[in-house]
Design a protein around this nucleic acid. Sequence first.
DNA 1: ACGATGATGAAC
DNA 2: TTCATCATCGTA
Length: 200
Amino acid sequence: MGKKILSHEFFTRSAVDVAEDLLGKCLIRKIGKKTGVYTITETEAYEGPYDKASHASRGRTARTEVMFGPPGHFYVYLCYGMHWMLNIVTGPIGHPAAVLIRATRSSTVNISIRTRGVLILDGPGKLTKALKIDKGLNALCASPKAGLWFEDRGIKMSKNQIKKTPRIGVSYAGPVWSKKKYRFILKKLPKEELSSFPAG
DNA sequence: ACGATGATGAAC
DNA sequence: TTCATCATCGTA
């Protein structure tokens, strides 16, 4: 099976396109000798300074600076005083946009009790907690060097597997932007296509 | 339905 | 310097 690291070009597009295309791609987390593979099942696009739901709509600040930088870098910030949100910057330099990674799914193999199951991380805060993602990754380039990156592992996607809905928790963005269907959900993923990570 | 919990940005 | 506001989650 091919394992292609998603690089610069993949993220140099509109956040909406990247958000949709990230479904079925894999998020890889390496800490020490342990490597986890997590298939992305839910994303949200925050597209540009005109998007009232985006932090970038209030201009260039210390926090949003990363969004104005190069694509393929992480934008990580604290939400509600306790949850880290993982975003990946998209579009060309100077265009503030990013995609929020909201949920993943991966197969698990627990050798000690000889069971096989599925690990579902179904919320942006749960995901970062499980993958030990925090401010330390902010502004870093997605890469093995950072210990966190994206890969295409050959999962085939078709449009009818994707559900589009308005984004979560953005009512403050006004009637137009809060209603945009910029949230992408992968409805189902065949078991054999689930990525796995080594136990122990 | 609501409280936890702290950074952020805007107002004064 | 103060204040309202959050791209959420777990418990009720």
